[in-house]
């Protein structure tokens, strides 16, 4: 337990001094502020772009447009940011050999995996929560009315997808060698999920839906129950990935 706490603290110090915290918090805050604002300003922006002989008819934006922006930003750039920021999460340690001393001091290998995941998860959770709060406040102010179904669950789904991504990244980094091996495998895995979803219509248990059906959930176009099932399955995946990571890491030559 001592080892976990000490290593967890070290992970946070690393996140602060290597600018991970700065990046995640500022970009999250930016997304939170920009999403409702872009939605609100869209008609004015488009009005400025005058096209000869064409009259652009734009319906008045509503708070749903704000949410469209928010989910778009987070499911694309947000996830890309998460991958970039945490891409070297374990790989860098292994490549540079910085774990040798802590491990020789008796740090348990399980603690390494758990501390790394917990630290990444708390960072992701807090920045995402910050973004969601700012976004909610701005939307409330700019559009007055916010009444949607399953708002919390929809936000939760995207958060869970982020948590899933981090778990996969960590596990891949345990298995694959090289500075960015884990990152490449994770991106490849995402690609496979995407192909499954778009080409083969394998959607029933696809975690990708957690990041692509958030709007549909809000507007009641997607059913709640199947997504809840996927959320449970994804939570199971996360757990399994972590257990796998710990088991493999325990037997890894350092």
């Amino acid at each position: 337990m001592n080892g976990f706490t000490a290593f967890f603290k070290k992970e946070w110090l690393e996140a602060i001094r290597n600018y991970r915290v700065l990046l995640l918090f500022s970009v999250s805050a930016l997304f939170g502020m920009m999403s409702p604002l872009t939605a609100k300003m869209m008609p004015d922006i488009l009005a400025n772009v005058k096209v000869e002989g064409m009259v652009l008819k734009i319906p008045n934006p509503t708070f749903t447009d704000a949410f469209v922006q928010f989910f778009n930003n987070f499911s694309q750039m947000g996830m890309a940011l998460l991958l970039l920021v945490f891409g070297g999460v374990l790989s860098q340690d292994l490549v540079r050999g910085t774990l040798i001393i802590p491990l020789s001091k008796g740090l348990s290998r399980h603690a390494v995996i758990l501390a790394k995941y917990t630290a990444a998860l708390t960072l992701w959770t807090s920045s995402y929560a910050l973004a969601a709060l700012i976004h909610y406040g701005y939307t409330l102010y700019l559009f007055r009315l916010v009444s949607v179904k399953h708002l919390f669950f929809s936000l939760f789904c995207l958060w869970l997808f982020g948590a899933f991504l981090l778990a996969v990244l960590l596990t891949a980094s345990v298995i694959v060698r090289g500075s960015y091996g884990g990152l490449f495998v994770t991106v490849a895995g995402l690609g496979i999920l995407l192909i499954c979803q778009t080409i083969f219509r394998m959607e029933r248990f696809n975690p990708l839906r957690l990041a692509s059906e958030n709007m549909a959930l809000l507007s009641d176009k997607a059913a709640f129950d199947p997504l809840l099932t996927i959320a449970w399955i994804t939570a199971g995946f996360i757990l399994a990935a972590l257990i796998l990571a710990m088991a493999i890491f325990k037997k890894k030559s350092i």
Partner: peptide
């Protein structure tokens, strides 16, 4: 029970 000094010790440079 062991203290270990690797040939080229690698530390966390930001600490």
């Amino acid at each position: 029970l062991i203290g270990y000094l690797p040939d080229v010790p690698e530390f966390y440079g930001y600490m």
